[in-house]
């Protein structure tokens, strides 16, 4: 499973949605994922890809990890996976 598909599956699981209902343009808000759900999703992503995501809930914009959309999350995780490789 590629990075994008895996992230969509994780977010769908968190949002209690079918993975086919998750698009790259979705936001956390449109998926109905709140701040606790986001922290759990980030943990699941870290576990799935064996990466460390520098996310601080107090200062999301300063974390260097863009959670604006599913697309931006996929891009940020892809970058971390490439760094690790």
């Amino acid at each position: 499973m590629d990075v994008q598909a895996k992230i969509m599956a994780i977010l769908a699981d968190q949002a209690l949605l079918d993975v086919s209902d998750v698009t790259l343009d979705d936001t956390l808000e449109t998926l109905g994922i709140d701040s606790m759900g986001l922290v759990e999703s980030i943990f699941a992503i870290e576990e799935a890809f064996d990466v460390t995501i520098p996310f601080n809930a107090n200062a999301p914009a300063d974390s260097g990890f863009d959670v604006a959309t599913v697309r931006s999350i996929v891009q940020a995780v892809s970058a971390l996976v490439r760094e690790r490789a």
Binding site: V39, I42, F43, F55, N56, A57, N58, A59, D62
Partner: peptide, 20 residues
């Protein structure tokens, strides 16, 4: 750490730059 509410650089209550 897991809760993502901790600061890595200091505690700055009520300051605009606070981060945990």
């Amino acid at each position: 750490e897991g809760l993502r509410v901790m600061s890595r650089d200091g505690c700055r209550p009520f300051c605009a730059s606070r981060n945990g």
